[in-house]
Structures are given as structure tokens and as C-alpha cells.
Amino acid sequence: MLPVPTLPTDPRAQHLMNEQQRELRRLYNDEDSRTEPFDPQTLSGEGSLLLTIEEDGQLLACGALKKLDEESAEIKRMYTVPAARGRGMGRRILSALIEAGRQAGYARLVLETGNQQPEAVHLYEQAGFRRIPNYGYYQDMEDSLCYELRLR
């Protein structure tokens, strides 16, 4: 199963990303019970790419690349449904996103994960991402961990 480009307006992709947000709210005891639905416009701009892995018509994993500026893009929405974890889907999606970033000419990729997600931290560090100071929206969030991968 290889990652394939998927439109962010695909209802299955929207469902997958809404599930990701619900899981993160539970994991971090986010008291705001209004799970914001995924807005496809956030991944519809120039330089954005959503990849998914599908099996038997069901999307099992996703990840996205979102252009920040001419030199950098952000890895977003990395998620694998719990029943499909441990099968290397996240690693395949991340590798494909890194390659897409290289082909797009980005100098670096950045991402944010949380301190309650050791599997994600391990995945990113194994792929060569290194900790950086928290950036942008995550700057003052104590449980956020930000990473960067230099592509050139």
C-alpha cells in the first residue's frame, strides 16, 4: 500500500482528520468538547498535498504538506487509525511527504507534535527531524514539541 494524493474535500479524508482531532483532544484532556470539523481549505492552497493510504475502500492513514513560504513547508495531519497502527503506514506517508518537499524545492520541513505522543516523536526523529524552538501558533504551548528537517 503506497500513499496516494487525495483531495482534502474527500469525505473519507475529512472523517479521518476529524477522528485525529478527537483523539488529540482525549489525549491532551482538552476541555473544549467542540471538536472543530476539519476545514478542507487549510490544505487546498498552492504547495499543499494530502496523502492517504487506502485499504478496501477505507482510508487508514493520512498526512499532509502545507506550504509556509517559498523556503519551507509544514507536515500536518499525520494520523493512522488505531486498528491499522504498527504496519508502517505513518513511515510511508512521512517518507513520501519528505520526498514531495524535496521535489517542490523546499529548504526545510517543520512540524509540531505533542509530548504525549512518543510514537510520533520516535517516527520523526528516526526520519532525521531535530527539535527546534516552538514556532508560530505553538510558541507558548508547553506540551508542544516542534521539529525541523533540513532538505538542503
Rank of each mutant, 00 (worst) to 15 (best):
Q58F: 05
D143T: 15
F38L: 11
G114A: 08
P3S: 02
Y124M: 05
P133T: 13
R34H: 15
C146M: 04
I75F: 00
I93G: 05
K67G: 01
V4C: 00
Q139T: 15
D39P: 09
A107S: 12
S72G: 10
G57H: 12
Q41M: 07
E70W: 09
L123A: 09
P133C: 09
G88D: 11
R152Y: 04
R77H: 01
I98H: 04
T113C: 08
P5D: 03
A61H: 06
Q126Y: 06
G105D: 07
Q117W: 03
Q116Y: 03
D140I: 01
L109F: 08
Y138L: 00
V110D: 00
L24D: 01
I93V: 09
R130L: 11
D10G: 04
K67D: 03
L27C: 11
D69P: 07
K66H: 05
L16S: 07
Q20W: 09
E31G: 15
S33I: 04
V110G: 03
Q21E: 15
E36C: 01
L51F: 06
I132N: 11
G86V: 09
N18V: 12
F38P: 10
E54F: 05
L149Y: 02
E71R: 14
Y137S: 13
K66C: 09
M89E: 08
D10C: 07
Q126S: 12
E23D: 15
G47Y: 09
V121D: 10
L50F: 12
I132F: 12
T80L: 05
L109C: 11
Q103C: 09
T52H: 09
L123V: 08
L123D: 03
L27W: 07
S33T: 14
P3R: 06
Y137N: 13
A13Q: 11
L123S: 02
M78P: 00
S33L: 11
V4W: 00
N18T: 12
M141S: 13
E36Q: 10
G114C: 07
A120T: 10
E54I: 06
L2W: 09
Y124I: 06
M17N: 10
S44T: 01
I53A: 06
R34T: 14
Y147M: 01
Y137Q: 15
D69V: 00
D69Y: 04
S95W: 02
M141A: 14
L16E: 08
Q117E: 08
Y138P: 05
M141I: 15
M141H: 13
T113W: 00
Y135P: 08
Q103I: 01
A84F: 01
P40S: 06
E31R: 07
A84M: 06
R131Y: 14
L2A: 12
V81L: 12
R26M: 08
G114V: 05
T6W: 10
M1Q: 11
T9D: 07
P37G: 10
R92F: 04
L50R: 04
G45F: 11
H122K: 14
P82G: 03
L59H: 00
V81I: 13
N29Y: 13
C146H: 03
Q117T: 11
R87H: 14
R108V: 00
T113K: 07
Q14S: 02
H122Q: 14
E19W: 08
E125S: 10
A64H: 05
E54A: 07
E46C: 02
Q117D: 02
D30E: 12
M78H: 03
Y79S: 05
